[in-house]
Design a protein around this nucleic acid. Structure first.
Lengths: 333, 333
DNA sequence: TCTATTGGTTGGAGCGCTCTAACCCTGTAA
DNA sequence: TTACAGGGTTAGAGCGCTCCAACCAATAGA
């Protein structure tokens, strides 16, 4: 359980510790003879460099910290894939921590990540207060994904929720819908832009917006539908704040004897793997998740290399994915 | 962008660096006066300890490395919750890395985790070869979750897949089913025990097992059903290797004009959040995921504290969750 | 009064590494 | 012959911290 150090390798190879260090860092100014002797000794000893000692001595880091607000949400997994891809290409490693959507736990996760003195930090949809983010940004480059910020040292990558909501409304209107309700995401991240986009799109079509208070869960979607069902005039189409909410809405509609999409059309948001399941086959709005990750990593690495000081605000265009939960209104099949 | 060190805090508080160190480690042998002075200075400076320098100097670590084979799978998120809970209680932090189900990437993730010299390592359903795990286990304590091992220095936490499959078969038999097919998980982790449990349970009931080759995805589940549909005698019940497979199977059945559960019953495995969605409402086998995490962390910390050298092999009992995809056979409602 | 004891505090060495500056060659120019 | 350049190599300092032994009152016991 005790790992060999550079000193051990140097001794065995009959060279100095500094020379071993040069070999390990792939320096060109080492003779081929010594290099192979060192590599052989390292191999025999099972030596591998101590990343922390290295980072301490060099006052640099090749690690990017990634804070995932919710590991349960596959959305973030795809963003992480994108981050990982770019980071690896450029010789960086990532370490992940999660806050489980709890500000307290997330704060601790942030502290923990920070204690490793990574080169930079990417926060995926963080729920900690902006001040905590600002404090972190004083110590290292920070990029926010799926959360906006006014801080000029922080870069952000977001989807354009207003555009996404508009795409959904346009789609429903083009099918002939006029009474389209929006099940709102409440306090959730990105709920605001989606709601605004919905309202704006409805008004642009000369229609009356109807925002129903809800949340980002399937239970909330079902509750919202049950509340709507007590009304006289049920909308002919629903735009949910996300896919989970949409699936809950569909269940509640079916429980009430209504058919989707012949009686009511439903559109989700996020294009999670859930939506793609053939059993669900939900029309929804797709966000380029891996692209979020790639752009976030790129932005971060630019800051790390001090190539840029101006903030970057990426706003990516979502796209509509039509599946089987939308159809013209009025029971036409 | 330059973080204060202990020296800075010491200077500001008018004490020695060693005293600051004692305060930061919560030592009792510090007067209340000095302690508060140090904490105040640290607060003002925005100081937080440098985990790597600490770990380097103390030759110990309070970090547990967690390798998640697939971030897309919410199963692991709940295991991580359990790990995090125990780790935090005992003053340990966790860092996560992921291998994205690719052995090459996972190997690199492992290297990266190892380079931080954590106190121990928990591998969630790793796909790297056993030798790689063995090598890691020579350097630090390792616990495997959802994968077995014969190495005596490695602890394991698994669900008893044989029992789980038996629970499912018993349930279906008690409903009156006789022709029950199993959609197999192929090479996937834990597919073997589930298959064996299914076969054994069928034979115990005097029934003929029918194993259909499939995989852990919804597309594979659908394919397997389409293959079955060409047969004359379709089974009256399906035991899928996991929930995704089950949902794919249900879709294919419905596409073929069959109703679930009145025509065919379907049972999943894992009780993912997907299964709980009211729209899916899948009868399935639940594994105590958070418990997996807790036990894994406990086992690891025992090794870290050198309280135990004998390997531990946890085999947890799964349980049946009856929802709406199972019913008596023969179209009875 | 002097010596022990004890709670609190400190300097210095050292963890495994990088980095700088100096050093030692050998080959070439003057 | 001497000077010089430059590739290859090395000693030593230092990164931010912990740990140990030593130290310093202040109190207690003899």
């Amino acid at each position: 359980m005790v790992r060999p150090t550079m000193e051990d390798v140097a001794l065995r190879a009959g060279v100095s510790r500094a020379l071993v260090s040069l070999v390990m860092r792939g320096s060109p100014k080492v003779s081929e003879m010594r290099r192979s002797a060192v590599l052989k000794a390292a191999e025999e000893l099972g030596y591998s460099p101590h990343a922390m000692a290295r980072s301490l001595a060099s006052r640099t880091s090749t690690v990017l910290g990634v804070m995932v607000s919710d590991l349960h949400n596959a959305f973030f997994a795809e963003v992480v894939d994108g981050i990982d891809e770019v980071a690896r290409e450029q010789g960086f490693d990532i370490i992940i921590n999660t806050g489980g959507r709890s500000p307290a736990r997330e704060r601790r996760a942030l502290e923990s990540l920070l204690s490793f003195r990574p080169a930079g930090l990417i926060l995926l949809s963080p729920v900690v207060p902006a001040t905590a983010i600002g404090k972190a940004a004083e110590q290292l480059p920070v990029v926010l994904v799926a959360r906006s910020s006014r801080v000029s040292t922080v870069d952000t990558v977001n989807d354009d929720g207003e555009t996404g909501a508009r795409l959904a409304v346009d789609h429903l209107v083009s099918l002939g819908h006029k009474r389209i309700a929006h099940l709102d995401g409440g306090e959730g991240t990105q709920a605001g832009p989606r709601r605004r986009g919905y309202v704006a799109a409805m008004e642009a079509h000369g229609l009356v917006p109807q925002v129903v208070s809800s949340e980002y869960t399937d239970a909330a979607g079902a509750r919202a539908i049950r509340a709507l069902l007590t009304d006289d005039a049920l909308p002919t189409a629903i735009l949910s704040c996300n896919d989970f909410n949409a699936v809950g809405a569909i269940s509640a509609l079916e429980d009430a004897g209504l058919r989707v999409p012949s009686d009511v059309s439903v559109v989700g948001y996020d294009n999670t793997s859930l939506a793609a399941l053939r059993h669900v086959s939900l029309t929804t709005i797709d966000q380029p998740r891996a692209e979020f990750g790639r752009l976030a990593a790129d932005a971060l690495l630019q800051r790390v290399r001090e190539e840029r000081t101006e903030p970057v605000r990426h706003l990516l265009n979502p796209s509509l994915v039509v599946r089987n939960t939308t159809a013209p209104p009025g029971g036409q099949r």
